[in-house]
Nucleic acid binder design. Structure first.
Length: 263
DNA sequence: AAAACCAGCAACCGCGGTACC
DNA sequence: AGGTACCGCGGTTGCTGGTTT
């Protein structure tokens, strides 16, 4: 049954949150006619919404394969990795996280990643913050993934071709599918796809005297010199972190982790 | 208990690219 | 070839629920 609007009132476009009724109308219409041609779809379905709005609602919320809930450490790792390659190409990144939408990934980046950059007094695009990601956050995520997958080295099955694979996010991208995580291979858990991805996940080249490094030691080691970052990002005084540590306990590294990195 | 504040997320907006006429 | 409509993307806004004061 197709609804053709007649009066001007009926034509008036709705905005804001979608109602359950509207969701149902949209889902039913797409079930019968398929998606696409959003402008005419909106009219024909009798929804007083723009085609854009319908498309967004469907893609970000109503689609049956949309995954909801917390971003897993694996997914976080993939997001960080892919963002380092492609920047804010959210839809492209989303292709490699089955069930996740570009909007969700974008929100994750803005609310979590940028928040931490802010607390470190870093620009999210700065070399300093990228070093923090590379040497602290990513190794920590790798460790977490290892911890949840047992003690044995994790060898992801290679050969995944389509981003929509169900074998897990790490298999969705060929380079990452070759990743072998071995506890003994490095202190970071042996993230070994780094060469092909242009990232260096090797342990941070900090000095034995972490405190000295925090003071802005020699960063001539080239890539990955994370030491300079600390002073620039507000870590110059280890004893007196200038942020609310509780923020870090859940998602990211803590000051304790930073010390452990140094051991 | 109420007000103020904050974080997270859903939805909107503007723009560029592309397909179609 | 030019114009128009539509689609998709990235940035931004604003609402809502939770937390703090």
């Amino acid at each position: 049954m197709e609804f053709i609007p007649r009066s001007e009132e009926e034509m008036e476009l709705r905005r804001g949150a979608w109602t359950a009724e509207e969701d149902l109308v949209l889902m039913n219409y797409i079930a019968l006619h398929g998606e696409g041609r959003w402008s005419s779809l909106a009219r024909r379905a009798g929804l007083r919404r723009t085609g854009k709005s319908c498309r967004l609602r469907w893609l970000n919320y109503l689609r049956p394969d949309v995954r909801r809930g917390n971003i897993t450490p694996e997914e976080q790792l993939l997001i960080l990795e892919l963002h380092s390659r492609w920047g804010n190409r959210w839809s492209k990144i989303a292709q490699y996280l089955p069930g996740r939408t570009d909007n969700e990934i974008k929100n994750y980046w803005r609310t979590r990643v940028q928040k931490h950059a802010k607390h470190l007094h870093c620009d999210v695009h700065s070399k300093q913050f990228k070093d923090v990601l590379r040497h602290l956050w990513i190794p920590r995520l790798v460790e977490r993934i290892q911890a949840t997958s047992g003690d044995s080295p994790v060898v992801a099955s290679a050969g995944a071709e389509a981003p929509t694979t169900c074998d897990g996010p790490m298999n969705a991208i060929p380079e990452l599918a070759q990743v072998k995580m071995s506890p003994e291979s490095s202190s970071t858990g042996g993230w070994s796809s780094v060469d092909s991805l242009g990232l260096d996940f090797s342990p941070p080249p900090v000095s034995n005297d972490f405190g000295a490094g925090m003071q802005g030691g020699d960063d001539s080691s080239g890539v990955g010199g994370v030491t300079g970052c600390w002073s620039e990002c507000g870590y110059s005084d280890l004893g007196l972190p200038d942020f609310d540590q509780s923020i870090w306990e859940e998602e990211l590294w803590s000051m304790e982790d930073i010390w452990l990195q140094q051991q």
